[in-house]
Amino acid sequence: MAEQAIKLGGKRKSIFIDKVKKLLPEGGNLNLCLTCGACSSGCPATGLENMDPRKFLRMAALGLDEELTSTPWIWMCTMCYRCVYACPMKIDIPALVYAARASWPREKRPKGLVGSCDMALRNMSRSAMGTPPEDFAFVVGDVLEEYREAQPEFKEMKAPIDKKGAHFFLNQNSREPVTEPDEMVPLWKILHLVGADWTYGSKGWAAENYCMFLADDDSWKKIIETSIDAAKELGCKVFLNTE
């Protein structure tokens, strides 16, 4: 046993981990790490860029802020929360990853994410593919007409847009209307068979939100608000996320 306590000199230089702690309930438990490694052993991103969740957290604890906020590993971690699920202390490592993403200047963040986010901001569809509301309405109407004619059992099938007072506000991933419109139909059929009262919104119909992944909080909020406001304005009761 040491005779004297070892005193650490100087001020703690870390600010990044402290900043993140302030944002989270219970500080995200970021100072409770037991270094057991349960996080890393069950993380599919372990080893990429010579990084893993435990290492990332330990680096934060040691105040290696520059390394933390420059490793591209933060864009490879999917923030899936399996590390938190496995952790005996429930440490919120993904929140640390998110904060590291947000610390990058926007123009330095991955181009694909910036592009998808910016596309969504272009019009009220909020689609990462930039599809405007009128194009969406056209495709939906066109496909619906085709199926109503071709499949007699579904001649009464509907795919409403902006139907006031509908129970469900359903969103739609952009990939279907843009690249494989027939794939929208099975869900319409299911909703038709159960007699669900549903609608898409011309505003905020797109389900994806790349601004969130980009860690651009203001734009993330703008996108989700468009959808929520549309659902509220129509008087819908349930916001139904598509598959």
């Binding site: 069950g42 599919p44 991103a45 990429l48 860029e49 591209p72 864009w75 490879m76 971690c77 999917t78 923030m79 899936c80 399996r82 699920y85 496995a86 991955p110 181009k111 694909g112 994410l113 592009g115 998808s116 990462a128 790349y210 969130m212 992944f213 980009l214």
Partner: peptide
């Protein structure tokens, strides 16, 4: 709840690190 992520989430499909994304997905 204990399932592994496939590697497509968190923006990974658009973040440009394809090689790493596929390596991530090897577990799945």
């Amino acid at each position: 709840s204990n399932n592994y992520c496939c590697g497509g989430g968190g923006g990974a499909l658009q973040s440009g690190y394809k090689k790493q994304r596929l390596q991530y997905g090897m577990v799945k």
